[in-house]
Amino acid sequence: MAVYLDCNATTPVEPEVQELVVRYFSENVGNAGSRTHEFGQQAKNAVQTAREQVASLVAAKPDEVLFTSGATESNNIALLGLTRHGEQTGRQHIVSTAIEHKAVLEPLEVLERRGFEVTLVPPDADGLVPAERVLEAIRSDTLAVSVMHVNNETGVTQPVAEIAAGLEEQHPYLHVDAAQSFGKVVDELKSPRIDLISASSHKVYGPIGVGVLIARRRRYRRPPLEPLIHGGGQERGLRPGTLPTPLIAGFGLAAELAEKNNKARREKCLAIRRQALAALQPLGIRLHGNEERLVPHVLNLSIDGLDSEAVMLSLKGLAAVSNGSACTSTSYEPSHVLQAMGLSDNEVQGAIRFSWCHLTPDVDWAAIRNTISGLQ
C-alpha cells in the first residue's frame, strides 16, 4: 500500500479526535442553538470548550473565535467582509502577495471588480516575500494587508511576525491565512497585531468541513466585518447556520493536542526530512524554497529532465505525492507560486511536493529514490 505523503492537502485525523467526533455523531446528539433541553446545552458546552481550545493555541479570546466551514470561507469573510467599511472610509487598497492561495487571490479579484486596487508583492527567488517590501507597499488608503503564514506549495514560512511588528499602530487590518501553519508554527500567530487569522481543521489532524476565523479586537473594537450569507445569527451574525457540533468538538481537541505536542511532532517531522534528503539528494534534486525558513514537513523539488506527471505515475502504489495545490488539481495549471519565484518552465513542470506529518508511517525513501532514478 502506498504511503501518504500529501499532508499539505489534508492530514490524517488524530485517533483521539476521531473517537470524539464519532461519539458526538452517535451519542451526544444536540443542536448548540437549542436552549430548552439538556442535549442542546451539552452541544453548546462542547462548542464553547472548542472555542477555548482554539483560542488558546494563538493567545486569542474565546469570543474572538468564529467557526466556519474551513479556511477558504474564513478568507472570504475576512476580505470580502471588509468591503463596505472600505467603501465608507475611502480605503480601497489591499496589499497581498503573488504567492497566496487561490482562496485569497480569487476574493481579491472580486474586490478589484468592485473598484478596489490590489498590490501583489512578489517573492524573492527563494519563495520568501520580504517584510520590508510588504510594508513599503502600504499607503494611506490601504484597508488591509493579507499574507499567508506558510506557503502551501513550497513550505516557506513568510515573515508575518515582522510584518505585524512593522505595522504597529498603522491602520490597515492584518489578515493571515494560517491554513498550513495553524498548530504547527505556533508562536508567531500569537501576535496581538494580527487582526484576522484563517485556519482549517483538516490541516491540523482534525475533521474535514470545519475551520475558524479568529477576529481579534484592537483597542476593544472588533474588525468591522459584515456577513456574506444571512439567516440565523450564529457566530455573531457573521457565519449563520447550524453549528456542526461533532466537527467543532473534534477541531477543538485537535487544536489542544497541537499545542500540547508541538515540539514532539516537529522533531518527528524533522527526522523524516533528514531521511528524505539523504535518500533523494543523489538524484540531483533542486529544492524550491528558502531552506532556513522551510517548515519541517514539506519538500518541493524538481529533478533535471523529469516531468512531475511522469514521477507521480511511477510512484503510484508506492507513495502519494503532489505537484501543486489540491484546490486547483482538477484543472492543472502551472504553479503560480513557482512562476512568481522565477523558476524555469522545466522546473515548474517538474516540481514535486512531498509533505508528511507525525502520523506518517515509516517511508521507504530508498525505494522512492530507486523508482525515480529509473526514469532518468
Rank of each mutant, 00 (worst) to 15 (best):
L20Y: 04
Q88M: 13
A279D: 05
S74K: 04
R91I: 00
H171T: 04
A319R: 00
S329N: 11
R353I: 02
V185G: 08
L238T: 14
T371P: 00
V298A: 06
A60H: 03
L338W: 08
L270W: 06
P123R: 00
G70V: 06
Q42C: 05
I208H: 11
D177H: 02
L213A: 06
S314D: 01
E333I: 12
L82Y: 11
P282H: 15
P62Q: 14
R273P: 02
Q92E: 14
I77D: 07
P361Y: 11
E153G: 01
F116T: 00
A161K: 07
R113E: 15
I352P: 00
H230G: 11
S308C: 03
S140H: 12
E162H: 04
Q88C: 05
D126I: 04
E259G: 09
L243C: 03
I303E: 04
L108C: 07
E112C: 10
A326E: 04
V150R: 08
A258D: 10
N45F: 14
V204S: 11
F116C: 01
P282C: 15
A254T: 05
A32W: 10
G317S: 02
M148A: 13
L167Y: 07
A144W: 12
S373N: 09
R91P: 01
V118D: 13
A165D: 15
K61D: 15
G209L: 05
G127P: 07
T97K: 07
I194R: 06
G231M: 06
V160C: 04
V363P: 12
D187E: 15
I272S: 04
P296S: 09
S355G: 05
A319Y: 00
L338I: 03
